[in-house]
Design a binder for these strands. Structure first.
Lengths: 331, 331
DNA sequence: TTGTAGGCGTTATCAT
DNA sequence: ATGATAACGCCTACAA
């Protein structure tokens, strides 16, 4: 049986209330008993029961991190950011992913909140509608969304429109007048923002915005990139460059397929990706891309949510981080 | 204020004990009250307080996943395996990494166990000594180690010696008589096993085992690979191939540096990596490597630990999984 | 089949 | 400065 406050209290000849106060460093304890109690606690190898403590204080001392799919390297990087600044923070990180689950993210959150399992939550890269996210607002447990904007919840996100604009602008400045775009099928907020940035840059440079130049792929994989290359080449308005907000793996597929067909990158065809994954430096030519500050996003998220949980901050917080354009060889 | 058992009890005209039995699907409850209680619970939107429940049942309903460094993609893949089979399992996953922490893995585990925060633990890729791991055995909370062998704890691991042997054997069969080896500096169990497999294969093929042919790098990065290439080339016994248990990124660095210097891979110099990371398919030539079944390791780990936690299984379990040799273009 | 009562290990509010 | 005592919300004998 584990040793409890009561065990210590008996040995020390005081009551468990006193021991509790000593353990929690409360004032108004005589130096003598404090010392004695601490000594006995150490002798008995006492550890406070976190669950009992949680019940008494009505705090779980836990932050829930809810992700739609842990298989995404993007999500994992943010998680790493969370954990690495979480070091100094006395909250346990509980990890949940919803892929293949019966519960949606909002349902899961609602349950966790009501079961009082978590004191706060971080929602990474959710694709739920504003309507569904509304439940997060309604619970008494604070929540912050990451990699997504939201008016009524704290948020940390990147300026995707700006990132896409930078990339497109770069291509335009290199003299490209026919710039295609490859997006991931699902109509998410980030995708739309990137598309908007792409179009804004085109317009600014006096180029026609042409829906035929925007192609879709199923997911961010190399085979999808190889496949889309053919469609790229058979466009009536033939592009000399492509911007690939769908992701770096698709961009890499495009680069490889182009080379495979004897088309030189970037001389004959320029490619710009999105994300800056490790493989971007491996492909030849190395991939020009747009980097998102994933670790920083995780860092901000955990800090903000802890501030909220502890009541240090109550105002709605929206933290926008900049993307960074990474020029390499492919454009 | 959240609704509690008592609230339901009052509305239903029974005591909270009865409500508790209904909520937990215990037998010996009349159909009538069961129905009534459930209806009211739903009306009031009742969720049981997980912490109170934990205190009463002395269970945290949580599994701790302890990793030395979440930045490792190897660790993350195993974590993904854990989470993806964890779907159906009613334990919360709590994530801890120890890098940059004051506590070692064993100290952290000990604290979590004694604070009764977790019912079981999964320790991924620990480099602690058997002596240090001993504390895991001593606590009443079961623990399983992943990607490492251990006599006195449950374990899931790959046969690294076999994986290295396969790779070396493959090179030998291709006619290579001078095969170098590049390992990661830290002397870990997996490294030693791989080295043993490498040497065993060499001997079997009648080749001299030569310590000069074994080089060390600081970590598994591309620049380290590029750097080590020079040393490889200046070896007195000039290798025609290299096996790189240090990891795929180092192997990729070697491939790229070789090409950079006009040495053809694999014609003039063959390279075999270890891990099969996504970039292995991106580099040109694509990287021949040894794949570790990371998702499966996570899968087994969570299943075994849950069996242990729930007392379904008590015997020590050692699960060895095979590596898979992935022939591609670089060898 | 249901109620009573006590306990799980802490914290917190009063007195003293 | 310390002790009683009552929560916290749920579970579980045992009694009725």
């Amino acid at each position: 049986m584990p040793v409890t406050l009561k065990d210590i209290a008996e040995k020390a000849g005081v009551t468990s209330a006193t021991v509790s106060m000593v353990i929690n460093n409360k004032p108004n304890i005589s130096a003598a008993t404090r010392k004695r109690v601490l000594r006995i606690a150490r002798e008995l190898n006492y550890y406070p029961n976190a669950i009992a403590r949680g019940l008494a204080t009505r705090k779980a001392n836990a932050i829930g991190v809810i992700v739609p799919n842990l298989a995404s390297s993007f999500v994992v990087r943010i998680l790493q950011g969370i954990k690495s600044t979480n070091r100094d923070i006395d909250y346990t990180v509980q990890l949940f992913d919803t892929i293949g689950q019966k519960e949606t993210e909002s349902q899961l959150f609602q349950r966790l909140a009501r079961e009082r399992r978590i004191d706060g939550a971080i929602l990474i890269g959710s694709t739920e509608s504003d309507e569904e996210l509304r439940v997060f607002k309604d619970e008494s447990v604070p929540c912050i969304v990451v990699a997504r904007t939201c008016d009524f919840l704290d948020s940390v996100y990147v300026n995707n429109a700006r990132g896409a604009d930078d990339a497109t602008d770069y291509l335009a400045n290199k003299g490209h007048r026919d710039i295609a775009c490859v997006i991931c099928r699902k109509q998410s907020l980030p995708t739309n923002d990137r598309l908007a940035g792409y179009e804004a840059a085109l317009k600014r440079h006096g180029m026609a915005v042409d829906q035929d130049m925007v192609l879709e792929v199923a997911d961010d994989t190399m085979p999808e990139g190889r496949k889309v290359f053919e469609r790229l080449m058979s466009l009536s308005r033939k592009p000399s460059a492509v911007f690939v907000p769908a992701g770096d793996m698709v961009a890499i597929g495009i680069v490889k397929e182009a080379k495979h067909r004897g088309i030189e990158v970037p001389a004959q065809f320029a490619v710009v990706g999105y994300d800056d994954i490790p493989a971007a430096e491996v492909v030849e030519p190395t991939l020009t891309t747009v980097r998102q500050p994933k670790l920083e996003m995780g860092d901000h998220a955990i800090n903000i949510i802890v501030d909220k949980v502890e009541g240090r901050e109550t105002a709605l917080k929206h933290k926008e981080l900049p993307t960074k354009f990474i020029p390499r060889e492919s454009a």
